[in-house]
């Protein structure tokens, strides 16, 4: 099917994905590994035929809200995965998933898929590098949380995780959207009620972005709807892994950059802001790239250079 259709289906999944999944609608995407635009069945023969020269280091890319793995494609047709394979000998794997499902559900599915990957890959995986873009970073965090609780084996292979434009402290746009919807509900007019109802159709995945909810129970925690920063996150980063943060910024003014960042995710949310130290992230693992908007972060040479530098570090 054409890329435009795939992209349209991805947008529908991001907006209504939980409804599509709940109603067994054929438009609901299932979480799959993909390579060269095709799904990769989770069997050793399938991996063996897909990877002619498999490497002992595997990099897994997890896209963001309403995206497919196409988001990683650069204008010249390259992508971070192919470049890492060419330059540093990583075998790339791309994840596609229904971004409208709760982040906790996608995290659990990703954890299960990675466990199968480790078992089915043609050679022993020595290092599993995870790269999450935007919502994908939160899905990766949720997956590592699941794996640590369940003692899954793939987690032992993860030394580094790279988060690209990930709203670790939540996305203010979603919080503001929620506030506006609630305000519309208060107005006793059938017209505004209708607008509020339509606005409320947004999926669980979108809602989870507001406060970066990684577990179902996170939604019940008390938080002010007015706050644009989340002071405490109930799921800390795993200390056994080196976490690298890459953020974009459209603004030269540091205050604007902190608040609006790459135009979707504020720098403070993508880099943990003042909480970076508490979150076990030393300053050298935080990179803010100027003049990059949120979309471009997924396929830009400067971000690849940062990613490559991270991969070249001995861990």
């Amino acid at each position: 099917m054409g890329k435009r259709i795939e992209q349209t289906v991805a947008i529908l999944n991001g907006w209504l994905g939980d409804y599509l999944s709940r109603t067994n609608n054929g438009l609901a995407s299932e979480m799959t590994f993909r390579l060269h635009g095709k799904p990769l069945p989770l069997t050793r023969p399938a991996f063996t035929s897909a990877y002619v020269r498999p490497h002992h280091r595997v990099v897994v890319f997890v896209h963001g809200l309403m995206n497919t793995e196409e988001i990683w494609r650069m204008p010249d047709g390259q992508d971070y995965g192919r470049l890492l394979e060419r330059d540093l000998g990583f075998s790339p794997v791309y994840v596609r998933y229904n971004t409208g499902l709760a982040i906790a559900d996608n995290g659990a599915q990703l954890a299960a898929l990675l466990e199968t990957l480790v078992q089915s890959f043609p050679v022993d995986i020595e290092e599993l590098l995870l790269v999450g873009y935007s919502m994908g970073g939160l899905v990766v965090r949720s997956a590592t949380h699941c794996a640590s609780l369940e003692g899954q084996r793939w987690l032992q292979r993860v030394r580094r995780i790279v988060y690209v434009g990930t709203p670790h402290l939540g996305a203010p746009a979603e919080r503001m959207g929620k506030l506006v919807t609630e305000a519309l509900h208060w107005i006793p007019s059938a017209y505004t009620q209708l607008i509020a109802d339509i606005s409320n159709l947004r999926s669980s995945g979108v809602r989870d972005l507001g406060h970066a909810d990684l577990r179902h129970e996170d939604r019940t925690r008390t938080r002010s709807p007015w706050e644009l920063r989340n002071a405490k996150h109930p799921v800390p980063l795993l200390p056994s892994i080196a976490h690298h943060l890459i953020a974009g910024s459209m603004f030269t003014d540091p205050r604007l950059a902190l608040l609006f960042g790459d135009s979707v995710v504020p720098v403070v949310s993508a880099t943990f802001g003042e909480q970076a130290a508490n979150a076990l992230i030393p300053p050298e693992r935080v990179k803010v790239i100027p003049k990059l908007n949120h979309i471009v972060l997924a396929h830009h040479p400067e971000v690849y250079a940062a990613l490559r530098a991270i991969c070249e570090e001995t861990s």
């Binding site: 099917m1 289906v9 529908l12 209504l16 599509l20 609608n25 054929g26 438009l27 609901a28």
Partner: peptide, 8 residues
């Protein structure tokens, strides 16, 4: 997918 689209 067409069936899904019709249902939606």
């Amino acid at each position: 997918r067409l069936r899904g689209l019709v249902a939606l």
